[in-house]
Design a protein around this nucleic acid. Sequence first.
DNA 1: TTGAAAGCGCTAACAA
DNA 2: TTGTTAGCGCTTTCAA
Lengths: 342, 342
Amino acid sequence: MADKSISKRSRRGSGAITLKDVARLAGVAPITVSRALNSPAQVSKEVHSRVQEAIERTAYVPNRMAGGLASSRSRLIAAVVPSMVFSVFNETIEALNGTLFDAGYQLMLGLTGYSEEREALLLDSVIGRRPDGIFITGIMPPGRSRSRLIASGIPIVESWDLTPTPIDMLIGFSHQKIGRAVAQFLIKKGKRSFAIVTAGDERAQRRNTAFIDTVRALGLDEVAVHNVGDIRTLRAGRAALAALITSQPSIDAIFCSSDLLALGVITEARERKIKVPAQLSVMGFGDVPFVGDMIPALTTVHINGGKIGRLAALHLMASSQGNAVQQPIVNLGFTIVERESA
Amino acid sequence: MADKSISKRSRRGSGAITLKDVARLAGVAPITVSRALNSPAQVSKEVHSRVQEAIERTAYVPNRMAGGLASSRSRLIAAVVPSMVFSVFNETIEALNGTLFDAGYQLMLGLTGYSEEREALLLDSVIGRRPDGIFITGIMPPGRSRSRLIASGIPIVESWDLTPTPIDMLIGFSHQKIGRAVAQFLIKKGKRSFAIVTAGDERAQRRNTAFIDTVRALGLDEVAVHNVGDIRTLRAGRAALAALITSQPSIDAIFCSSDLLALGVITEARERKIKVPAQLSVMGFGDVPFVGDMIPALTTVHINGGKIGRLAALHLMASSQGNAVQQPIVNLGFTIVERESA
DNA sequence: TTGAAAGCGCTAACAA
DNA sequence: TTGTTAGCGCTTTCAA
């Protein structure tokens, strides 16, 4: 009956209070403490309060790594997002995090910086944590990453786009329809000479292509495209207008791939005393919180980012508990919010 | 020599490929695979390549929960932040995440929504994950949460503020000095009638108090204070100016607790044809990426958020590896960026 | 309602 | 350089 703590081998572990310590203090078996914590209904009132007291006195905090390993449930959800800084994904992440937290889950955040290489690395690292679910911004094209994701067996929510073949679940909207709708909106406003100010990412390109095709189908002038690549700043938006106005002075409407770029275009227009929307209509994408309260208020495409986050959290949690997916594809749609800038 | 997989007890676990499977395939002991993965230098070339091949063929992804449990190193860092949506903390988080990721760590994100109650809950939940480090926005006042944090033994970085008694490490700046510096800056510009537009959080209050004291010491008019509470929107900034201008038309300078509120004040000023800065100077706080490119360009207090994140990541990783903290308190300071609005 | 035993998938410690 | 053994701290399974 040697005391375990005086074993021959030197001590391992973190030295923190464990379930065992609490159990000893409460005079019960470790498993009873586990039950008092996880399914109190299975424990008698008397034992429960004794355990509670022991937990208080020791300031015990259960080790969720150990719990996760034993139960194959980590209560961790991972989110893979391109960027955080003033991005359209912020609301989604806040909503995701809030919904998860209220249910006892935690959020692991991964940022790809719009780089596919980084995304692949990140995904492997994420899978290694064995999260109960993974939220992905965008859809996973066939390839190594997609295969690994599927092989991992972890519930996946793809988002922010549409495809008939999601891995698991999908909450999104059609970028093609947005491009078309924006073009039609602008044309209906009487605009005839269009330009696009866009970042380099693939989803933006699909909006652009649809926009261009719609304009082209009507036999209007070619759409001038200014691509800012990875520089999604307000300043890039200003520079874009400066460049466009020189090369193609006839432009009377610009569709931007983000609200921030649109703000840049509007700012530069003001600098150049170009009247928005009288001389130039400007539209953004995202409907980020404050753009509706600026002067001129931005006309833009509204995406319900919060809802994407909440739905994703709910789906992921349900799915990890073995509940079948009700609706594998949810099309949240979008709305054009008409304000002053177009 | 019964096959383990035909044990009497029914199968547990996730069913995923494990170290053992890889080891069997490569014809080595499990620990050898572990070494090939974690310290390749300890393994012969020949064995290493056999292991690599087995890993490729099985698409094995190591279970980091198990690894973390066994080694008491989770390679997880937690960040506790008030908010994500268009917040001044975004850059810090991106930098934190980037630095961590490059070193093989992952970021766990916790959002408090500026609520202390939520923060306390979150902290317990975070400690349960046994992260190798915790990044906290702000400093931890004495109390239950602080005690638990200390008891956990996890390296902590407090930030975004200054105190002589951090738990562990501190990377921040003085809010009091900012309030004073902004007041002096505005006074030097010849402004005489001041107002503050502020959110309700405690750090903002400390900037405000210092600002007010500085003004008061010079015998100038009392500073009008408009508190927007938790509504940190551009719209709230607009409403604030509307209210202030009515109650105190003489105001010629406003200090806002965030850039977004400042943008709101400027927007409302434009609506009311109040010239900024000729009639009204406006200053913000944060120097969020795009405010320098707007019209008028915002004069504001610059905080090097990215540096806070990078330093915190470095400190946390070093500290979790047992390296003593070099500099427990780092005062990053701030700069007033003079642009057009003041 | 409570407990004993076994094991989740990995790594530290010791041994060869 | 490679392997054996014994856990890390918890939960599942089976038994009482």
